[in-house]
Simulated scan of single mutants.
Amino acid sequence: MIRVPVLPTVVVAAAVVTMIGLGFWQLDRAGQKERLLASYAASQGLPEIAFPTAPLGGEPPLFRRAKGQCLQVTGWRQVAGQNARREVGYAFLADCRTGAEGPGMVVDAGWSANPQSKPQWTGGPVEGVVAPDKAARMRLVSASGLGGLVASAPPSPEMIPNNHRSYAVQWFAFAAIALIIYGLALAKRAKEAAN
């Protein structure tokens, strides 16, 4: 009769329970992400809104058509981007002053293959689609290129991945592998004890 070591068994059991729990958590996240993506897809058909310049509570109105007014461009930054033909290059983002209220807005003025391009846009009315932005939470992607740039690819909910189901499978696989390895270690221990 093999004596099962208590501490390693407790550690492996705790790790397996944690991994299974993380797998179920990822499945729950997958459902949440599917609902969020469905709401983004539905927002594409809603009427145009004014781009929100005041801080928002909750989720921003991503992928909704919007219009805004950039009173003055206060700075530029570049990010990796694509044009409507899916050519890779640089999207030029303008930080805009919108008045005394709120934090202003970020406008994706357009795309260029040349990172040295100097957009000639200094501000004005913008119509486009609200997209996520890592620095400012959201930006307005102009429907037409501004300041001599080509229009950037219009944002779409399809650009947001939903990998949570594959992550869940990975966690469940890790748990199974841990059990198999521990079972093999116990079998080896039993064989050595029998000899």
Rank of each mutant, 00 (worst) to 15 (best):
R3G: 14
V4Y: 01
P5T: 03
V6P: 13
P8Y: 00
P8L: 02
V11P: 08
V11S: 00
V11R: 03
A13K: 09
A14P: 08
A15Y: 09
A15T: 10
V17Q: 11
I20V: 10
L22A: 04
W25C: 04
L27M: 12
R29G: 07
A30R: 07
Q32E: 08
K33Q: 14
E48M: 09
T53D: 07
P55W: 03
L56Y: 13
G57H: 13
A66K: 04
K67Q: 15
Q69W: 09
C70A: 01
C70T: 05
L71V: 09
Q72M: 06
T74H: 07
V79D: 11
G81L: 02
A84H: 13
R86C: 02
V88E: 13
V88P: 03
G89I: 04
Y90G: 08
T98V: 02
G104N: 02
A109M: 01
G110P: 14
P115A: 09
Q116M: 12
S117D: 08
T122M: 07
G124S: 02
G124L: 05
V126Y: 03
V126T: 01
E127P: 14
E127T: 15
E127S: 15
V130F: 00
A131K: 14
L140D: 01
L140Y: 03
V141K: 02
S142W: 12
S142R: 07
S144T: 15
G148D: 05
L149K: 05
S152C: 04
S152H: 08
P161D: 14
P161C: 12
V169I: 15
Q170G: 15
F172A: 06
A176F: 08
I177N: 06
G183W: 09
L184F: 15
L184A: 12
A185Y: 13
L186V: 07
R189E: 02
A190P: 00
A190Q: 04
A193V: 07
A193N: 08
A193R: 10
N195P: 15
N195W: 10
